[in-house]
Amino acid sequence: MRTRTRLDLRGLVLPATILLAWWVVSANGLGNNYIFVSFSRIGAAIAQFVNDGTLLAGTTATLLRLLIGFALGAASGLAIGLLIGLSSAAGRVISPTFHALRQIAVFAWMPLLTAWLGIGGQTMIALIAIGAFYPTVVNVEAGCRGVPLPYLEVGRVMELSRWQTIRRIILPAAAPSILAGLELAVATAWLSTIGAEYFISAGDGLGIILAASRMRGSMDGVIVGILAIGLVGFALNRLLAFASRRAFKWRAPST
């Protein structure tokens, strides 16, 4: 029997090279010591952030924020996406506005949002929700509209009601696209989370560690922040990929 998932070591070549280059530059004083922080100082910063609880509090707060913002954005995105995907009348009313608003970058909403919600947690949540909202709507709508005609004809031939057609044909057919939209929404919500934290900097959070370290001029803190953000993001991404691979038992496993 072969192992199903084998770690491909080739994927580690680039990170190892970068680490090595960083080490060569920082240990031999070849670069700006302020920017190319030595491994020992990074290690010390990690130890400090771990010991004083900053890293744990930051990670928890960031993930919680992501979760709330994503839930709000994805839920409303699901609702709007289904509405315009299932009803062409609703689509004609809502779609033009939606696609116009979609062109506005998430962070362009910041001045308005801070005016409405203040410079704090609510604005951060709103930015994350906006980040999750758009990809959800786009993919849910595309999934509902893209159901192959032959399947819809099966529904007609079987005398399924509108509701039965939605439940037994449209939603299952759209499910892979909906899931892909939610996966994308987590990714954009994650970007929004870090951005919102960095710009608004209220409370705990990985993005806030980043902003605070930069303010203090402590580049080792910035690097620890970047590492933590990268690691958490990577873990989220893997988790979702893993979950979505086994989401549909009716699909042929792709090997």
Binding site: P150, Y151, E153, V154, V157, R168, I169, P172, A173, A175, F248, W250, R251
Partner: peptide, 12 residues
């Protein structure tokens, strides 16, 4: 009606 492509719903 029986179609050339069997049109079984893949999720059922």
């Amino acid at each position: 009606i029986l179609f050339q492509d069997h049109r079984l719903l893949p999720w059922l």
